[in-house]
Design a protein around this nucleic acid. Structure first.
Lengths: 338, 338
DNA sequence: GTGAAAGCGCTAACAT
DNA sequence: ATGTTAGCGCTTTCAC
């Protein structure tokens, strides 16, 4: 170590670690030598000795899904300021992959995880982790009540959209859902169906899987009905876009003959040639909150668990509203940032 | 170590490391004990002792830019198979941030980097790195000739688009570029302008910065001309989408009165309500190649540098071609995967 | 306030 | 083919 060029050996450690017990003058001298010698403290050795490395794992089902990048970015930006690293883990919603990642990163000394795609892997993940305080769930609500989470109020978001569609005069509303194990899907449907039924309307539900694949089939089936629906909701914006495409290819004009809406307010939702009505999540807030909670938990053993539901925001745009000539009226995702 | 429950101490190391010099029977016994004791080799200790941790850093200007997630995913997927981790580093195209990340991760023992957003930070990055073999550039071509890279043939891509637009009968073509230091922007313009001039057409160029911000302004200026352009090209698909929006808000019908095209073929380019003509990159191939090269370099000191130019693919869609009634004819990005 | 010594849990020669 | 001996570069008691 650079001790030779100054005074001692372990004093250097204290200096670097900003330990209080160190003399004014000594500290100055050491610091001088340190950057005079272009010395690089080895994060590895430090991690081994102290048992923790400033790294977290971010579990997502698919980073290429446009919902996740802004979340990842928010987390990464805050981590960078704290000198933390975030390693990105694509689970593909496969429990084995999740567990594999968790075990490997745990051995690598990561301090904790943020899991933005909890699903069938939840129990296995918690088991592999040992300590549930080393993880906080985001986006999808965990079934377990013994872990922290930050999710959107999906029921409320669904309800907002339902009320809006009813107010627009729709009475038969179709919903292309996500997989049954995804809490967000079930919750959005609950809110949506609740509002629709309360407004005297009716729902049609088809099961999808978060991907646009089933859209064509679902729309085709729905349009074959004697009385087809007039409003179509996708579990997310990608699905809604696919529904839009299927509808226009079937010869229906949007929004004149059919309304379309999605969830999440991902970037392309407003930059699409026909701006999409959607219920947005506060993704950046979600990411930052999740990280803060995680770090608090892993650093303070007495910290209590935290459960947060973030509000969702309805963005009315051109796929549902005829009287909306320009796109200027709806804020873009970045305008929403807080 | 679990040596107590078996035979020795460092033999266990050999077993785990799959070292050849170890007896059949011994290996079996050790392995038995290992998972009988739920033993977890510490990646940290291993990294400290061996000097390398199976991790790479992925430098991108902005992971929320839709071009990067598929690249990150391709790299991550391959890394996972190799038991590598990838930590994601948002540089915001700020040299200080890049250097900060590189120094921190180097201290953390990462084996190398893939830099997908080389720019003003190139020299600083190379300096901070010391050994240029610890990095491979992707997407944007480095100025230095002493580093490996995998980039698209942007000149060729630009040329394809230019030839196509000329063939469509356009003679005045506007291009909203990226920042001057971005090789991809300059190269695309070179190819585009070359083809246009060769076809007897003319170019109009405005400088942007990869973001949709300047689109409205640029389009407004262009449309004020006595003889406005009939085709508009954005440096990427987000910019092209913004141009599309600005044009339609100015009352022009696309593609009837104005053609629009972009670069990259990002996901929303085809899922947009009006599918966008674009020149796609082979993003997944780029990511995989870059990783393979990097790993080869850091593991084999005698490995030579590698320079690759990937072809680009023109996707003709509805923002330029009147005679294209359905979207079925143009493959989606996932269909392009190889 | 500072130094000395003992590891953290592995890998890597060297010896057997 | 296996055991022995040293470290990797830090942090952390524990004395002084």
């Amino acid at each position: 170590v650079a001790a030779a060029a100054g005074v001692s050996a372990s004093t250097v450690s204290r200096v670097i670690r900003k330990h209080p017990d160190v003399g004014q003058e000594t500290r100055a001298r050491v610091l001088g030598v340190v950057d005079g010698l272009s010395y690089r403290p080895s994060g590895l050795a430090r991690a081994l000795a102290s048992g923790r490395s400033p790294t977290i794992g971010l579990l997502v089902s698919d980073i290429a899904n446009p919902f996740y990048p802004p979340l990842a970015k928010a987390i990464e930006q805050r981590c960078r300021k704290l000198a933390y690293s975030v390693v990105i883990c694509n689970t593909n919603d496969d429990p084995d992959t999740s567990v594999e990642y968790i075990e490997r990163l745990l051995a690598q000394g990561v301090e904790g995880f943020i899991h933005a795609s909890a699903g069938p892997d939840e129990n296995a993940v918690l088991a592999a982790l040992g300590d549930p305080r080393r993880i906080v769930f985001a986006n999808r609500r965990p079934r377990s009540t013994d872990v922290s989470y930050v999710v959107s109020n999906n029921v409320g978001g669904g309800r907002q959209l339902g009320e809006y569609l009813i107010a627009q005069g729709h009475s038969l509303i179709a919903f292309l859902s996500g997989p049954p194990w995804a809490s967000s899907s079930a919750e959005r449907l609950t809110g949506l169906a609740g509002a629709v039924e309360q407004g005297g309307g009716e729902m049609l539900v088809a099961q999808g899987d978060f991907t646009p694949k089933m859209a064509v089939q679902a729309v085709t089936t729905w349009l074959e009905r004697a009385q087809p629906p007039t409003a179509f909701v996708g579990i997310n914006d990608q699905v809604a876009a696919a529904i839009y495409v299927a509808l226009t290819e079937s010869g229906l004009a949007v929004p004149d003959q059919a309304a379309v809406a999605g969830f999440d307010n991902v970037e392309f939702a407003w930059s699409a040639a026909v701006p999409l009505t959607t219920v947005g999540q506060r993704t950046e807030t979600m990411g930052r909150r999740a990280l803060d909670i995680l770090l608090r938990q892993v650093r303070n053993p007495t910290q209590r668990l935290t459960f947060q539901d973030l509000p969702m925001d309805l963005f009315v745009r051109n796929t549902t509203d005829l009287r909306r000539p320009t796109r200027k009226e709806s804020p873009t995702p970045s305008e929403m940032a807080q």
